[in-house]
């Protein structure tokens, strides 16, 4: 079916299957930052914003995006680079495959939490898996980025 979605502040008409998930639609339309890491909503790689809220695009039917605002990291390059610089400075970038989804959650957290504790940060980001870093380097970087180190 045909739906109208606002992706990164531009209105796009998309042809989608009834059972298609948003992650696949977005990749099909060239938003390659969005990665698929699992099929069970566990890894967080596919995180995008739906109406500003971090959302797993692998667990969101594409048709449900009709009329909504979808934001991917392509539209947040300035803000993303700001976080990325802290990750890279810590050496916690590693393979980078989980990073776009991770950064989308980090950017949402920054809007939502004021001066979070370590536990609050870990809890907010718990849905974003990473197999390379062991997480502690990411935590150091995110705390510096948030100014709570």
């Amino acid at each position: 079916m045909r739906i109208e979605v606002i992706v990164n502040n531009r209105k796009i008409e998309m042809d989608v299957e009834n059972n298609e998930f948003l992650v696949d639609t977005l990749r099909r339309y060239g938003f390659n930052s969005v990665k698929r890491g699992c099929d069970t909503g566990n890894c967080g790689l596919c995180t995008v914003w739906v109406d500003e809220k971090p959302t797993l695009s692998c667990a969101t039917l594409a048709v449900r995006a009709a009329g909504r605002h979808i934001t991917t990291i392509e539209a947040l390059q300035t803000e993303a680079k700001e976080v990325a610089e802290f990750l890279v400075a810590e050496g916690a970038d590693q393979c980078g495959f989980c990073s776009p989804g991770f950064l989308m959650t980090v950017l949402a957290m920054k809007k939502e939490l004021q001066n979070p504790t370590d536990e609050e940060i870990k809890h907010y980001l718990a849905g974003n898996l990473c197999r390379c870093t062991g997480y502690v380097g990411q935590l150091r970087a995110i705390k510096k980025y948030l100014g709570v180190a």
């Binding site: 930052s33 990325a84 990073s99």
Partner: peptide, 22 residues
């Protein structure tokens, strides 16, 4: 020296550099 990874900023911010992207 603690030098930053030369691909870090681009892989991290979602540039199309992995197999399926290409």
């Amino acid at each position: 020296q603690p030098i930053s990874k030369l691909d870090g900023l681009n892989t991290t911010t979602g540039k199309p550099v992995y197999t399926d992207d290409l």
